[in-house]
Computed example of a mutant assay.
Amino acid sequence: MRYALGVEYDGGDFSGWQRLSQPGTAGPPTVQAALERALSEVADAPVATVCAGRTDAGVHARCQVVHFDSQARREPRGWMLGATSRLPPAVAVRWCVPVGDDFHARFSARARRYRYRIVNRPVRAALERQYLAWYRQPLDAQAMHRAAQALVGEHDFSSFRTVRCQAPHARRELQRIAVERVGEELAVELQANAFLHHMVRNIVGSLLEVGAGERSGAWIAELLAARDRTLAGATAPAAGLSFLCPLYLPECGLPEEVTL
């Protein structure tokens, strides 16, 4: 039987999503390793997982979608509660749904959403500090939003991916990007068919230079056309980034929050 899970986690204490050692061996703490240990205990047999999109060290997830196969007979509620009771406090399984054998957490996803949060004031945050980046200079959120619209559409995003990115090409379709301010906090929300390694954090790092008045609004379009990572802004810190969710077609039968 194949199951899909909605998994929430605080990435602050993890070396990212991906397991960095063989199952059953010691290695850096990762979300995948913790989840597979918990599911394997519930199943009383080894369980391997596949996620919709790997996250880096320090990056959080509101609803990461994962699938796994198991011959163990457990109700969805049993998988959800049983796994969560065996997970560290920073990880929880929010829901479990039986899915067809053709469902794939990564390849069935049609889009992915991220949110980057910034506290913009002279002093750093104390509350929610693990979920916020800090930028002390005043930022013009409207200028950032206007500049970001040059990125919407299908483009080569080579200027916004890390040199360690292993994707075979840099073409992605950015479907939506918005920058909004509420009080002292700015949020950058992005939706795309897929993202490159560090793509969100590199886009935000460049937009911060526009918001601070160090670059013109036209600079983002120029960076996109240049296809040169060395010309773009610094990579924004991981702490402000959350993977909101992937999105699937209704026929996948998943909860509404991850359905297009």
Rank of each mutant, 00 (worst) to 15 (best):
D156N: 09
S108R: 12
D56N: 10
V50D: 02
V188F: 00
A61S: 11
V59D: 04
A147Y: 05
P88H: 10
Q71Y: 06
Q64L: 12
S108T: 12
I220F: 05
L260Q: 13
A225N: 08
P76T: 04
E36T: 03
R110S: 15
E180I: 05
V182P: 00
Q130I: 11
E180V: 12
F14M: 14
P250R: 08
V182Q: 09
E251R: 12
W79Q: 03
T84S: 14
H145P: 05
L151K: 03
G153M: 08
P89R: 13
A45G: 07
R136N: 02
R86T: 07
R37K: 09
A109E: 11
G58L: 10
T49R: 08
I177R: 03
V47W: 05
A238T: 10
V204E: 03
P23R: 10
L151A: 03
E257V: 14
H60Y: 09
R215G: 02
G27A: 11
D228I: 05
S158Q: 04
R86A: 08
A150Q: 04
N120S: 09
R129L: 12
Q149P: 03
P88D: 06
E251F: 07
Y116L: 13
Y131D: 09
H198I: 00
W219T: 06
E184C: 00
R176T: 11
P46W: 05
L254Q: 08
Q137V: 02
A148L: 06
E180Y: 03
S15I: 02
V93N: 04
E173D: 15
W17V: 10
Q191M: 15
A236N: 01
L260F: 10
E154H: 07
V210F: 01
A125V: 10
W79T: 04
V200S: 00
M144P: 06
T84N: 01
Q22A: 15
A148G: 01
A148P: 01
A83M: 00
L81V: 02
D44N: 14
Q191A: 13
E185P: 01
V50A: 10
P138Y: 00
A105I: 13
G11P: 04
A133Q: 01
V7E: 05
P88I: 06
A170H: 14
